[in-house]
Design a protein around this nucleic acid. Structure first.
Lengths: 213, 213
DNA sequence: ATATTTTACTTAACGGTGTTAAGTTACAGA
DNA sequence: TCTGTAACTTAACACCGTTAAGTAAAATAT
């Protein structure tokens, strides 16, 4: 009993260590520069050992991708206590951009890099542990539904508006992270993203009072 | 004279052939699956020959990236004759999303993939042939400036609003292209992007009449 | 206590990648 | 005819993800 328990615990510890090392390397150097061989070297195991704990590279980065959503939800959780849904919505937009700018590599993995989506497609059958991602998007949808219930965004579909709002902030963050801002403006760079983020607020402010065209 | 002319012409022809082959492979299989060796094999030269015509892989994809902007500007040129700047702005948003959905790989290269930006950074000195990219963004900025001159978007900065508008449509397109839509909604997929695009129109419609908060 | 199976891991290899140094061949100009 | 240069190739370096086969130790069964 206790001895096979220990073995199992040790297996889980090594799996966690692989993940933790992958995370460290990934945050230092990004996805492309984090190889199975690098991870292996740092934990002092052979590269093939990693395949005893993860199906492939996508599987590792899918696990990290999930960690990213846990972190994002931490940013969001603080906003649960904003009473007014419209104020909460604007706070979500700001928190999202802040999360992206403070955790660039994670953001890249969660919303831009293809790898974790490949892993998700390979599983496909159950995929029920997308939980943390659903929680994040669900928070946005619920907030918008509350807004609509209060008379904001009259005549709009909540899910589509949630997606469109997400698109706005994702657009800002991904252009910043993939270096498309510097090319387009002289404003020094975190500034353009932050000013766009403020403008999203302004857009939301202007939107809600007018009836559909 | 005429003989060295021919040589020079042949060099340019081979350079063009490399580019054209890279483009074909890239559109068939995407960036990751297009290798120098693949290109070389298809044109029946050795891989190293390619380095006589392009500095590195980034350099090749920077050239293709430029072609992408020429294509995007073709989509835009048709809208030059829309008189009303506000209608033109909405048409630009729609044309942009259409371009992205019809030319997914190109869009990826132009606005998501890191490679061409690496090439741009390496040059750095002159970089004056960014022309086509400037033309595209300039078209958007000018249109918004015209809108502001006509009384739309009162109190807003044209450049920041242009960037924010770009962010909205880029968000939609990049979430679609990098497969983040299916995960979030049951709506079948080109639909979510198109409905979000319509909602951008709706947002613009609702924005312009109200004064800043 | 010995034999067998299972676990945990490694070595070696396959087939790919971008890139560079060194070598070859053919042709233009002296 | 000799020489230098232009155009191209061969071979190699240092990586990559991944898999098949092998090893050594520990657990289990006899």
């Amino acid at each position: 009993m206790t001895i096979s328990n220990r073995k199992e615990r040790q297996k889980e510890e090594l799996k966690a260590k692989i993940l933790q090392t992958a995370k460290a390397l990934f945050m230092e150097r990004g996805y492309e520069e984090t190889s199975i061989r690098n991870i292996a070297e740092r934990i002092e195991y052979s590269p093939t050992t990693i395949y005893l704990y993860f199906k492939d590279k996508d599987d590792i980065f899918y696990a990290l991708h999930r960690e990213g959503f846990v972190l994002l939800n931490q940013y969001f959780r603080a906003l649960g206590h904003v009473e007014d849904p419209f104020e909460r919505l604007k706070a979500i937009a700001k928190a999202y951009v802040t999360f992206a700018l403070e955790n660039g590599e994670f953001y890249d993995l969660m919303f831009i890099i293809r790898s974790p989506m490949n892993a998700l497609e390979k599983e496909k059958k159950e995929e029920l542990d997308w939980e943390e991602g659903d929680r994040a998007f669900g928070f946005l949808v619920n907030t918008i539904e509350e807004c609509i219930a209060k008379g904001y965004f009259k005549g709009m579909n909540a899910e589509v508006l949630a997606f469109t709002t997400w698109s706005m902030v994702h657009g800002i963050c991904s252009l910043e992270i993939r270096n498309r801002c510097s090319v387009v403006s002289e404003l020094n760079q975190p500034n353009l993203a932050m000013r766009a983020c403020e403008m999203v607020n302004e857009i939301l402010n202007r939107m809600h009072t007018v009836s559909p065209s």
